[in-house]
Design a protein around this nucleic acid. Structure first.
Length: 491
RNA sequence: GGGCGCGUAGCUCAGUGGUAGAGCAUCUGCCUUUUAAGCAGAGGGUCGGUGGUUCGAUACCACCCGCGCUCACCA
């Protein structure tokens, strides 16, 4: 099949036709033509696009070409374009062409372009897995033989984007969401910064890192699992609010909500605490919903969600107590284990009160948090970088945002007491010694930074991929990442 | 990593212990308002890979590769 197309390419070239042109100026596009069409007005247009459907008939032909905004029909007649028509007969579905012509409406009422000049822009050598569309009695578009192999769609996203236009829409929305978020953060006076991806120590989250090696320094480096510790160093340095939108990397399993590399937004604002941050998150999400979607009510996987403030606030400890009757802060480890077992958790590999509490929470409470909610005040052992609660013993000033039973953000009043921070790191080191692979590393330079003094600071992390999933109603993270991680195949 | 399922033409899929089929796509011819264009004809497959059972395997068995669902893991 590819050979046949190469033969066509040779034939076109022998006629002096450029098969990979250099440029083409356009004056319109498929959508604009349809939007601005007025009956009986022959408007001159120049458009370019990929041939997606072809109906060649002797001395006249119809085709649909597709550009970024959709498809439009073109009409070509031998009488009009002479020898270009002969060349057109050597063109295929998949070829990219530029056409000049005037708009009109066919007998059957389809707005089309009557071509007066045809230019081949790119000859396509590989056949597209093209599908066909029909319209049923109720006006629904029925797609036949759609390119549907999930594996191939991810591996060859370029093909997916050509033949499944709704895929493009999700990624356009993704871009608009990050763009709206960035604008909102900038409008609030915060500075977008970049910090190291290659780090000699990893930190800021509980996760296993990817390890790499720097040859010249002959040293191990880690791909960051979070931006946190560097951004807080910048707050020490005196910036009045910094944020970073970038990839983090975690060396863990992959599933519908986890990709080894994913996009995180982290924000640190001095002189603020987690209460302030909660309302800031509400405002930011509201802003994105309104600016990108013009609404606050969404449906996600059958669940109705309204992002309008004010989100529910739920104390983690109180929520568990209400549900199970156990106050997990005061309970001993045995009570926690019994509670967890009663809920059906497999606790054979869970050690320590904090992790048990976390497990109980994820089983008993998390799935019920459908409407946007903040879960507040976490056990101190789970949060080595968060500040102790000003009133409640044993917990930190931390919240996580949950929507549709999924975590979408994590934030706290940042721990800025270097002596306490040192203690927390030491505690994490003990966990590590006891076999917790994800315990935090000790970062002495970070402690040194805190010793110079970091103002009281509120910090936030939002998983962009998961936020985009929620707002675009996608249930797999792979559908909001252009090139999700796949196993290598040697072919 | 465990369990279940899947892998047949470019795409979507049927199929059988006797060496493979459909529609669309492709190619040839006809066709100047078609639209899943039409009509007439044609080509196209190491049936995911490697072994095994068998006279004979795409089918049965084992292993491997890849994918999906799910569980585990995972702030």
């Amino acid at each position: 099949m590819i050979k046949r197309r190469k033969d066509e390419l040779t034939e076109l070239r022998s006629r002096g036709i450029e098969t990979f042109a250099y440029e083409f100026d356009i004056t319109s596009n498929s959508k604009k033509i349809k939007d601005e069409f007025v009956d009986d007005e022959k408007k001159e247009v120049k458009i370019a696009g990929r041939i997606m459907a072809l109906r060649k008939m002797g001395k006249a032909s119809f085709a649909h070409i597709q550009d970024e905004f959709g498809r439009i029909q073109i009409y070509l007649r031998k009488d009009d374009i002479k020898e270009q028509y002969t060349a057109f007969k050597l063109m295929d579905i998949g070829d990219i062409i530029g056409v000049e012509g005037y708009t009109f409406k066919t007998k059957t009422g389809e707005i089309s372009v009557h071509v007066t000049n045809l230019t081949l822009l790119t000859k396509s050598l590989r056949p597209l897995p093209i599908s066909k569309e029909t319209v049923d009695e109720e006006g629904n578009i029925v797609i036949h033989d759609q390119f549907a192999d999930i594996e191939l769609r991810y591996r060859q996203r370029y093909v997916d984007l050509i033949v499944n236009p709704e895929v493009r829409d999700v990624f356009v929305l993704r871009s608009k969401i990050t763009s709206a978020m960035r604008r909102f953060l900038e409008d609030n006076g915060y500075l977008e910064v970049e910090t190291p991806i290659l780090q000699p120590l990893y930190g800021g989250a509980a996760a296993k890192p990817f390890v790499t090696h720097h040859n010249a320094l002959d040293t191990e480096l880690y791909l960051r699992i979070a931006d946190e510790l560097y951004l807080k160093r910048l707050i020490v340095g005196g910036f009045n609010g910094v944020f970073e939108i970038s990839k983090d990397f975690r060396n863990e399993g992959m599933d519908k909500t986890h990709n080894p590399e994913f996009t995180m937004m982290e924000l640190y604002v001095p002189f603020k605490d987690y209460n302030w941050m909660m309302s800031f998150v509400e405002k930011m999400i509201l802003n994105i919903c309104e600016n990108v979607f013009g609404k606050t009510k969404f449906n996600y996987d059958g669940m109705n969600i309204d992002f309008a403030p004010k989100w529910k606030r739920v104390s983690m400890i109180e929520a568990i107590e209400q549900k199970t009757g156990v106050n997990v802060l005061n309970a001993d480890e045995k009570t926690l284990k019994d509670t967890a077992k009663k809920l059906g958790c497999d606790i054979s590999e869970i050690n320590g009160k904090a992790k048990l509490i976390d497990e109980i929470f994820s089983i008993a409470i998390q799935p019920e948090l459908i409407e946007p909610s903040f879960v507040i005040d976490y056990p101190v052992e789970l949060s080595p970088l968060a500040k102790k609660h000003r009133n409640i013993e044993g917990v930190v000033e931390r919240f996580e945002g949950y929507v549709a039973g999924r975590e979408i953000c994590n934030a706290f009043s940042e721990l800025n007491d270097p002596i306490d921070q040192k203690k927390r790191f030491d505690e994490q080191a003990r966990f590590k010694a006891e076999g917790d692979e994800e315990a935090h590393q000790i970062d002495n330079d970070f402690i040194r930074a805190l010793e110079y003094g970091m103002p009281p600071t509120a910090g936030l992390g939002i998983g962009i991929d998961r936020l985009v999933m929620l707002l675009t109603n996608q249930t797999s993270i792979r559908d909001v990442i252009f090139f999700p991680q796949m196993k290598n195949i040697t072919k």
